[in-house]
């Protein structure tokens, strides 16, 4: 064993704590600000302890009745974002598990062509095809719809590749045994493949939920109406440095509310999240 150096370990703890303070500070600061009144926020430096306006600010932001962002309440924005994140996560998992199933467990003409067609889309991120995609959305009448927010982000090769990779590790004997016992493709999928994929699905769900929740460019283009906006875009619209009327205390509250759901998902589903992120790569 390498000599156990208590001083070295103490230094390690100290550096980690400093690191965590740096990582946590911007969010902590915003939380503090969200419990202060507008006047306190505008008069720096801010105290490092929570102020006394927690309930006041949070209830004003959540149930204030007044539409903060162009007539739309925070609850509506959170709901839109939730629909978008869930839609992308669930939709992506569904269509990619099906296509991976087709590619791995069936032999049919054009199999590899289809695989490559899906695979190459890795090289076509939204950013490189913004304008033409936007035009298509306009032509299809999908601006300001949930379909428009969700559908184009649903197809991507990533989830398909992950499932494909996992399916490849399933022993052929299992398929053979299932077939001998008279199970058809649907039965095999439902009773054997799905239960085996549970952890992968959970891991992917966390990653895709975060992906959907944190989208920026796409909802920015896809939504004109304020009531179809997502929380991140809404937040951006609330902030104006030129305008003296920005209600910073409510901006801070909205910021915390926008961060909270995905952070909770990551922290509570940490086991699957880390697994999905790191171990699929090995």
């Amino acid at each position: 064993m390498i000599q156990n150096n208590p001083i070295g370990r103490l230094i390690a703890h100290a550096i980690l704590i400093i690191g965590i303070l740096i990582v946590a500070f911007p969010i902590y600061y915003t939380f503090i600000a969200s419990t202060q009144s507008l006047q306190e926020i505008l008069r720096p430096p801010l105290s490092l302890l929570p102020g006394g306006h927690f309930w006041e600010n949070y209830s004003a932001a959540l149930f204030g009745g007044v539409g903060r962002i162009g007539g739309v309440g925070v609850d509506r924005l959170l709901f839109n974002t939730l629909v978008m994140a869930l839609g992308i996560a669930i939709g992506k998992i569904c269509i990619s598990i099906l296509s991976a199933y087709a590619i791995v467990f069936f032999r049919f003409p054009g199999r590899m062509i289809f695989f490559w067609l899906i695979f190459i889309t890795l090289m076509l991120p939204v950013e490189v095809r913004i304008l033409p995609t936007y035009k298509i959305m306009v032509d299809l009448g999908l601006i300001d719809t949930y379909t428009g927010l969700i559908l184009p982000l649903m197809a991507s090769a990533t989830a398909t590749l992950l499932f494909r990779q996992f399916f490849m590790t399933i022993p052929g004997e299992l398929v053979e045994a299932a077939r001998v016992d008279g199970a058809g493709p649907w039965r095999f999928f439902k009773d054997i493949l799905l239960p085996l994929s549970k952890t992968n699905i959970a891991a992917l769900f966390v990653i895709l939920f975060i992906y959907g929740w944190t989208q920026y460019l796409w909802p920015l283009l896809m939504t004109n109406r304020n009531d179809m906006s997502t929380i991140v875009i809404g937040l951006r619209k609330m902030i104006s440095f030129a305008d003296a009327d920005t209600e910073w205390h409510l901006v801070m509250v909205t910021c915390i509310l926008a961060i909270l759901p995905p952070v909770l998902v990551v922290v509570l589903m940490q086991r699957w999240f880390v697994r999905g992120l790191v171990e699929t790569e090995k």
Binding site: G19, F25, P26, Y29, T214, C255, A258, I259, V267
Partner: peptide
């Protein structure tokens, strides 16, 4: 304690830093 900023949207990460470092407040 280290992993949760992963869940913060890039745009919000930018805003958080702006809250800390914008010259007016």
């Amino acid at each position: 304690l280290m992993i949760w900023p992963y869940a913060v949207a890039p745009a919000i990460a930018g805003m958080l830093w702006l809250f800390l470092f914008n010259p007016s407040m």
